[in-house]
Simulated scan of single mutants.
Amino acid sequence: MVNTIAALTFVLAVILRLEDANIRNPRVAKVLGTLVSLAGVMSMTLYKGPVVKSLGHPLIYIHRGNGVVHKNWSKGLILIAASCITWSIWYIMQAYTLKRYPTQLSLTIWMSFVGAAQSTFYTVIVQHKRTAWTMGFNIDFWSTLYGGIVISSLVVYIQLWCTIQKGPAFIIVSNPLSTVLVAVLAYFVLGEKLYTGSIIGAVIVIIGLYLLLWGKKIHNQK
């Protein structure tokens, strides 16, 4: 469901006139590209097919426990849907904010600062134990370092720069690639099963991305 953010963002961008979806000219490729990418992701999720033969031993072994999982599908679907909608709105807000405040670097700093302040306030209320705040020189340290430098700094800054150059729909349409990359890395690094449906869906996603890029190129030429 997270990959529906691309379609939701494009729809919001069209409604707010940040993107053109005139289906009477070749720029219809932008609409088709978004729908095709979404169809590719859905096929990866819903269709498995035969398992691809493993090429070797995984690089990392993960112990999977048999803990009890409590499921609540109704609440889960509502929360995921709300997350997708608010995430799409966040990308649209970036586009509007950059029109009045086009300095990507300082905007990235402010966004990171506000996010850190909110997370700190929430964690202080939820976690009162000292162990929740301590960090050793292990995977917790490296994941936190990666999240701060790459995710909260480089990725946000690059997203803001691309939003100015190409618009919010151009940024979010590449999100389905994360599903493809996760499937590939999980297969080679963690040794998880890879299905033919995932490969077919990945090809469809790439075709959709090329359609959208082609539509954007035609739009810029005109």
Rank of each mutant, 00 (worst) to 15 (best):
L211P: 01
I92E: 03
L154N: 02
L209W: 06
L8S: 02
V14Y: 09
L18E: 05
S74K: 01
E19K: 01
K99D: 11
C162P: 00
F121G: 02
A95S: 12
L181N: 05
E19W: 09
V189Y: 11
W73A: 09
G191I: 08
L213T: 00
S174V: 09
L18W: 04
S83T: 14
Y195G: 06
T179L: 15
K71E: 15
V189E: 05
Y61M: 11
Y96D: 03
S178G: 14
Y146P: 05
I171F: 08
Y146D: 05
I207Q: 04
L55S: 12
V126M: 14
S74Y: 08
G147K: 00
P176R: 01
K217T: 07
G115D: 05
T179H: 04
T134F: 11
A7Y: 06
A169C: 05
M93D: 05
L18P: 01
E192C: 12
R130N: 12
W110N: 05
K30G: 01
F113C: 12
T120A: 04
I139Y: 12
T45N: 09
T9M: 10
V184Y: 10
A21N: 07
Q221S: 13
A82N: 07
V173Y: 00
T103P: 01
Y210V: 11
E19A: 02
H128P: 01
V150I: 15
I218W: 05
S83G: 13
Q118P: 02
L107K: 08
V180D: 05
I78W: 15
V173C: 03
Q159S: 14
L18Q: 04
F137Y: 14
Y91Q: 06
K222A: 11
L154G: 06
L16K: 04
I204S: 01
Q159F: 10
I139L: 14
G76S: 04
Q165E: 14
L59D: 12
A82P: 03
L211H: 00
I78Y: 11
V182N: 08
S119K: 01
I171T: 09
L105I: 13
V150C: 11
L154A: 11
N22R: 13
K71V: 15
C84P: 01
A117T: 12
I171N: 02
V180F: 13
